[in-house]
Amino acid sequence: MQIVAYLNPVTNYSKISRLETDTDYLLYSVEGKLIRQGRIQNGKAIDFSNIKKGLYFLKINANTIFKIIKN
């Protein structure tokens, strides 16, 4: 099953669904700097409210990377 991140572009939160188990995530700037890391549960949201506007890469598991636009 393919993991889904929705509400993209993001204003405050991006919800993650179709995770089989609790999963670690990493959020990187377009320059490759690690901005945030954490653990996410299926159907829960990642908080982007304190992150500057711009382009980010959200890595979930080793195989899944989403391009996220923060408005």
Rank of each mutant, 00 (worst) to 15 (best):
M1F: 07
M1Y: 09
Q2W: 04
Q2P: 15
Q2G: 12
I3F: 04
I3R: 05
I3G: 03
I3Q: 04
V4L: 12
V4Q: 13
V10P: 02
V10F: 03
T11Q: 14
N12Y: 10
N12D: 15
N12W: 01
Y13F: 12
Y13D: 02
S14K: 02
S14W: 00
K15F: 07
K15Q: 12
K15W: 03
K15P: 00
S17M: 14
R18F: 13
L19Y: 15
L19V: 13
E20Y: 06
E20S: 14
D22K: 14
D22I: 11
T23K: 06
D24V: 07
D24C: 05
L27I: 15
L27F: 13
Y28N: 10
V30D: 08
V30N: 11
G32Q: 00
K33G: 00
I35F: 04
I35H: 02
R36F: 01
Q37F: 09
Q37R: 14
Q37D: 15
G38I: 09
G38L: 10
R39H: 14
I40M: 08
I40Y: 07
I40W: 06
I40A: 07
Q41N: 14
G43T: 03
K44P: 05
K44V: 05
A45D: 11
A45V: 03
I46N: 00
I46K: 00
D47G: 06
D47A: 04
D47L: 04
F48H: 05
S49V: 06
S49A: 13
S49I: 05
N50C: 06
N50A: 11
I51D: 04
K53G: 08
G54L: 02
L55Y: 08
Y56A: 06
F57D: 03
F57M: 12
F57G: 03
L58V: 01
L58C: 03
I60D: 08
N61S: 08
A62G: 10
A62P: 01
N63D: 13
N63V: 00
T64C: 08
T64V: 11
I65M: 07
K67N: 11
I68K: 06
K70N: 02
N71C: 00
